[in-house]
Computed example of a mutant assay.
Amino acid sequence: MSTHILITGASRGIGAAIAAALAGGGARVVALSSADGDLADPATPDRLWQSSLDRLDGRIDGLVNNAGVFEANPADAADADWLAGWNRTMQVNLTASAQLCRHAVRHWQARGSGGRIVNIASRAAYRGDSPAHWHYAASKAGMVAMTKTIARAYAKDGILAFAICPGFTMTGMADDYLASRGGDKLLADIPLGRVAMPGEVGEMARWCATDAPASMTGAVLDVNGASYVR
């Protein structure tokens, strides 16, 4: 019987690589993108969970929260604009993920089946980010804390949770950031000498979602070329 996986933010970059890795491993995947709904709308995660459940014949075995936004929010912006930017990033990156995690936990408890959650966080959860990205770093730190809490709370139910923290990854988003910040200088901060490839993150997520040992639940895995080691 194939494993049924729901993944958000799967249209490109890391999300597309995760979806490809999972499908290549034999999983049946529902790969959601912004075309399926705007996660900034608090009603969207509930709707997407139900529609995905319907598409997967009433059974979801794994959830990968990859959808996120990385939008500048300068501290000197107008008060209302800064708060709106903060709230949007928190809703998309953290709250929507929490809503989906909650649905997954309740689904698995009701089925008595167990399941796996993989949350794609960021190096920024530990290292922080630029002065215009307080909200991004805070949202990803929240994902890590949420993952650890879920792992501790529900391991007894066979519900496992993992977080992956990429550094710079070769996606369109990272390309823009590297260009704006001086790519050579940033690459010099990565001992490996290059940014991660989406397929590297995809394989890590596939493994966590399907094959990682149960005793690893609660683990936070880095993929940043040793640019930040804990």
Rank of each mutant, 00 (worst) to 15 (best):
L32M: 10
T147W: 07
R111C: 07
A104T: 09
Y177G: 01
P131Y: 04
E200A: 10
A214P: 02
A16R: 14
S113H: 04
A35I: 01
R12V: 05
S113L: 03
S139F: 02
D61S: 01
S215G: 07
D175H: 00
R111K: 13
W82C: 04
M216W: 14
R106H: 14
F70H: 14
T210M: 15
A31T: 07
L48A: 07
M204R: 03
A43S: 13
G115Q: 06
G199T: 13
T217S: 11
A124I: 05
A121H: 01
I14Q: 06
P213Y: 09
A23M: 01
D211K: 07
T171W: 06
T8A: 10
R59L: 08
S180W: 00
C101L: 07
I14F: 05
A125M: 01
G199L: 10
M216A: 15
T8K: 04
R47M: 10
M146T: 09
G167E: 12
G199E: 15
P45E: 09
S33T: 11
W82T: 03
L94S: 05
S139D: 04
G182N: 06
T171Q: 05
N87C: 11
D54F: 02
D61Y: 00
S139C: 06
V223W: 00
I14V: 12
A209E: 07
W207I: 12
A10E: 09
L221S: 10
D81Y: 01
I159L: 11
L39V: 03
L22C: 13
I159W: 06
E71I: 15
R152N: 12
A188S: 12
A67M: 05
G26K: 01
R116H: 05
T95E: 14
G199D: 15
G193D: 10
V201G: 06
A72M: 11
S139I: 01
A125V: 00
G199N: 14
R127A: 15
R194Q: 13
A10D: 12
L53M: 11
A104K: 05
M204W: 02
M173A: 11
E203R: 14
Y177E: 13
D76Q: 13
A196C: 13
D184K: 11
D222W: 00
G167P: 02
Y154T: 09
D36N: 12
V201A: 04
P191S: 14
T217A: 09
R102P: 06
L186K: 02
T89I: 13
V30E: 15
R88P: 12
W108V: 11
S139W: 00
H103V: 07
F70C: 07
A205Q: 10
A67F: 02
Y228E: 09
A40N: 15
A78D: 15
V229W: 11
L100E: 05
H133K: 07
R181A: 13
L94R: 03
A121P: 00
A212K: 02
G85V: 10
S97G: 15
W207T: 08
I120R: 00
A132W: 05
G15D: 08
S51Q: 14
G172E: 15
D81R: 03
I7Q: 10
S11V: 06
L160H: 14
V105P: 03
